[in-house]
Design a binder for these strands. Structure first.
Lengths: 239, 239
DNA sequence: AAGTGGTCTAGACCACTGA
DNA sequence: CAGTGGTCTAGACCACTTC
């Protein structure tokens, strides 16, 4: 055996997918059919399917079957710092709904305290935890800490609207955003909230927003499904 | 059974990891030990471990054991378009080696032909495929298409050095870069080249670089291990 | 009821690692 | 060599979906 059987089988199936034998959205043969076709045990077929799922090529639905994944991604364009990334999607005609999970005053973790330059005596901030639904489907979980003064002022607005536009409307201009983009994998909570399998690839956009005078206003993380979103940036030479 | 056994077990192990009972780099109990501890079959223990691996919390090494992953990431800072992302790492004191896999003239795919504005009559470009080793460990695969004139001119230099500095040195300034960052999962080739398990999360930086007069020069993708790298961006308000 | 994928068992053999 | 994880088998039962 030069190569594991399950890999051999998943590679054959992968080839059929990339060749277009099974189109996006189409159903793959059932486990029973694959057992018959490749003459192997069920556990090996299941492992082969797991390989495809891990590669993001297929998704299993209990009672229905295994389906080839759709491969289109929505683009968050990072442009002006005052434009919340999700706003960009609305311009693309994607229906956006905000579902607030948490909105309360908390003592943020050390790292956030420093970024927001909170007083060490009584370091509090408002924590918002929201799910962003795109076309009724959960696509992003947003966890944001905002300065307490701002949280109090805008409590009602912040719970049902995008954060950045609310700030701009209240004369808190966003001058600069420091951002960091990374990959992470779904833990049980994210897996449940975003309705993806445990370990699913996620794209995380960490951001700290500063208003006039380089004063930090908020710090947050937008965790999106990695199979459905990406970020676009344009870098221009300073002249 | 409200929750699958394997999830129950992986959650208990996860808690021990986050609580610090098992520190990064430490070895988890062996499958045999876990079988004894939780009184379940081997397949269930293996599934529990697979859950941890999928979440990026652990990594298995045959013959050695399962180990808690190290969680530090190197940062690619996206600043001036003329600075190749990887250069940034050298400034951080990380040893960088380039291993060229492919360097040849090819007919690029349709999408690249358009981006590079190649003549439809005879659309050729140089394709470079490189592995970037950080501290002797493969961390990134770079696939770049460059205009044929440039490829010919710089053949020898391009094979062993970073692309952008070579261009700058030959008076081809990079004025603008259009970039896109996304998640993808390791297919068998990437899995082998980057020495990660099949399906491992990867961070991909697609980029098209333009020189004076908005003429495209090259288009490429830098595919990095998602568990070891991230991208930093700074967005400033235009004044 | 029939078909699908999800969970779990007991057991065998193989491949790699390190003392 | 003993200990580790990797592959594979046959078989059972469960949960969900569709008809």
């Amino acid at each position: 055996m030069s190569q594991p059987l399950h890999l051999d089988i998943s590679e054959q199936l992968r080839q059929r997918i990339t060749a277009g034998d099974y189109l996006p959205g189409a159903k793959l043969p059932s486990e029973r059919q694959l057992i018959a076709e490749f003459q192997v045990s069920r556990i090996t077929v299941r492992r082969a399917i797991a390989n495809l799922v891990d590669q993001g090529l297929a998704i299993a639905h209990q009672g229905k079957g295994v389906f080839v994944t759709e491969r289109r991604k929505a683009v968050y364009t990072l442009t002006s710092p005052g434009l919340f990334v999700a706003e960009d999607l609305q311009n693309q005609g994607i229906a956006l709904t905000v579902k607030t999970l948490i909105f309360e005053q908390v003592t943020p973790p050390q790292s956030v305290q420093q970024l927001l330059q909170l007083p060490s005596a009584e370091p509090t901030a408002y924590l918002q935890k929201k799910i962003l639904l795109m076309e009724q489907v959960p696509g992003c979980m947003d966890i944001t800490y905002v300065l307490p003064e701002i949280g109090e002022l805008l409590a009602s607005a912040l719970q049902h609207q995008m954060t950045f536009p609310v700030l701009e409307r209240h004369n808190i201009p966003i001058e600069r955003v420091e951002a960091m983009i990374e990959c992470q994998n779904a833990d049980p909570e994210l897996s449940q909230q975003l309705q993806v399998p445990l370990g699913h690839s996620l794209l995380t956009y960490h951001h700290t927003a500063y208003t006039t005078g380089d004063r930090p206003v908020l710090h947050g993380a937008s965790i999106s499904r990695g199979d459905r979103f990406c970020y676009a940036v344009s870098l221009n030479h300073a002249r």
